[in-house]
């Protein structure tokens, strides 16, 4: 992980208690994290700034995670998106993969696993389109 350029991550989830503490833990690990409490806020932040990767919850009240993913993919096709799901089934997460997600994680998730997946996705995205 490069110390000079921190990985910029957009975290989209409507469960504030979860995103806040996850953001703190990621920042502690040297990531530049922005939190969006809804799909709409996530889209707004993405329009305003550049991100290396996004982590998006599948189930949100205002917008479905898959829809957010699709819009993200349209806006910044190169940005990998990792889907988070609290759903007991992995089916929804797999739907997300089909819709273009880079990877998925089941809530509650291990922070190291999330970091590993983020790093892998970003690395792949940098090499991938070539």
């Amino acid at each position: 992980m490069s110390e000079a350029i921190p990985l910029r991550v957009l975290l989209v989830d409507d469960e504030a208690g979860f995103t806040d503490v996850l953001a703190k833990r990621l920042r502690r690990r040297g990531l530049a994290v922005e939190v969006a409490q809804s799909g709409a806020e996530g889209l707004r932040l993405l329009r305003e700034r550049d991100f290396d990767a996004a982590v998006c919850d599948l189930k949100m009240v205002d917008m479905d995670g898959i829809e957010v993913l699709k819009v993200f993919r349209k806006m910044v096709p190169a940005m990998p998106v990792i889907m988070l799901t609290g759903h007991g089934s992995e089916e929804a997460a797999k739907d997300g993969m089909q819709a273009g997600a880079a990877d998925y994680l089941l809530k509650p998730c291990d922070i190291d696993e999330l970091l590993a997946k983020l790093a892998a996705a970003v690395a792949k995205a940098k090499v991938g389109p070539a």
Partner: peptide, 25 residues
């Protein structure tokens, strides 16, 4: 119903785990 409940219970569990992780950090 169980799927709904599992999802509902998953969120607080995720928060608790993150908070615990944060304290460990």
């Amino acid at each position: 119903l169980a799927a709904g409940i599992a999802h509902e219970i998953n969120n607080p569990v995720a928060i608790m785990m993150e908070e615990a992780g944060w304290v460990s950090d």
